[in-house]
Amino acid sequence: MTDHSESIHSQQSGHPAEHIESDERTRSLTWLARVAGVTLSTVSLGFVLLLLVVIESGGELTLITRPFLMQVVLTLPYLIGFLTVGTTAGAVLAWWHRYWSRRVRIHHTLLAVLGLGFSWQLVRLGFITL
């Protein structure tokens, strides 16, 4: 009986140890969401720049013969797709659990929308095969 009431108490007001664990989990989730957003922006811009650099230096032929560097570049769209999923999940969680300030949440949501649009076009242009 005592164990049971403790359990209810713990669920309602939270054990200090669980508070710490929950805070760490939240911190880790918010950190992951922010990292996904920053990495999504960086990799997306990096993909376009690298693609242009490789085609400029090796010619259009590189899209056909696919030297090692082009093979690396062509894996980035899949990473972008993965990061878009992460950023979008982060945005949903942020509104659900009220992480961050409203301004940061809007910023993160905009990034997720941009990521979804960019990934859609990567699928449309054949860089991502579903």
């Binding site: 922006s41 997306s44 811009l45 990034l111 941009l114 649009g117 960019f118 076009q121 449309r124 242009l125």
Partner: peptide, 20 residues
Amino acid sequence: VTGSILGVSLAGFGLSLAGW
């Protein structure tokens, strides 16, 4: 449509990184 979405996305990513 393709050009607009790609352009807006890349501009948004760039501005976001600049903000960070």
